[in-house]
């Protein structure tokens, strides 16, 4: 008998083992849901998959009686627009701040303490300030996401910039490169895959800020809908929405990973 730390599953077995917990959870849900529904057919807590499908058909493929919109899709579009804008702004700002403070000691001396303090502000606590200053419109939600994840991306990129071997910077200087050339040609290309990675890691926080902002002040969006239908205990809408958000998060993460691999083939080899 091998030691436990040396016992590894075969590839096919690994897949099956990975799927096992999902299957168990699903089964557990179906059994308990059935048991509750058998006792009380009007139970709302653990809806059957049939009623979830029914609710989602209504949300996704029938126009809303009030506005005529297909709510599921308009919610998705609004949320993704906010998340995309917020994350894009944070990525650009984070990259610029991170490279500038990572590569230029003078700028680092000025901005690093500020960056450290900013990153410690719990930015959900700033949400009321944003609502007061920027109003309840789209801007405050996008700004919340941007403020929330920019410090994380900036600090990550700053650290990654400093991790680039000093030998490369010296080499570039002995080839006659000026500071701008070193930043554009040596640092920036090597930091792009790190930026994609930082964005992947900060998407989770991005979703959190998005849903929080939508729950508090919004008229559409995935987070808004979940908190709205909570009043009617509509678990048949909430659960599919949560599953949908999870799926979107998974797809973005997967796509970003693939893009990074495709564009920067030299990255993983180090």
């Amino acid at each position: 008998m091998k030691r436990l730390i040396n016992l590894t599953p075969a590839p096919a077995m690994k897949w099956l083992l990975g799927l096992l917990p999902f299957a168990v959870l699903l089964l557990l849900y179906v059994v308990t849901s059935d048991a509750r529904l058998a006792e009380n057919a009007a139970d709302k807590l653990l809806p059957s998959f049939g009623s979830m499908q029914e609710a989602m058909t209504r949300m996704a493929f029938e126009p809303s009686k009030r506005s005529g919109d297909y709510l599921f899709w308009t919610d998705t579009a609004s949320s993704l627009r906010r998340l995309g804008a917020g994350v894009a702004i944070a990525a650009v700002l984070g990259l610029i701040i991170g490279i500038a403070t990572g590569a230029l000691p003078m700028l680092s001396a000025v901005f690093s303490p500020l960056l450290t303090v900013t990153s410690l502000i719990p930015c959900l606590a700033l949400l009321p300030v944003l609502f007061i200053v920027l109003g309840l419109g789209e801007l405050s939600k996008v700004v919340l996401i941007a403020i929330g994840i920019t410090p994380f991306i900036a600090r990550d990129i700053q650290r990654r910039t400093r991790e680039i071997p000093v030998e490369q910077l010296i080499k570039a200087q002995t080839l006659g490169a000026n500071s701008a050339q070193i930043i554009c040609r040596v640092l920036l290309p090597q930091l792009m895959p790190k930026l994609i990675n930082a964005v992947r890691l900060s998407l989770g926080a991005g979703w959190l800020f998005l849903i929080a902002a939508e729950a508090i002040a919004s008229t559409d969006g995935l987070g808004y809908r979940i908190f709205l239908v909570r009043r009617y205990l509509s678990m048949d809408v909430i659960l599919p929405y949560v599953a949908w958000i999870t799926l979107l998060a998974f797809v973005f993460d997967y796509l970003l990973r693939r893009i990074s691999k495709r564009l920067y083939p030299w990255e993983l080899a180090e």
């Binding site: 030998e167 490369q168 570039a172 040609r185 030299w266 180090e270």
Partner: peptide, 10 residues
Amino acid sequence: VFQQYSVFPH
């Protein structure tokens, strides 16, 4: 020329 990291990996 250093022992390592002398060329640009990208």
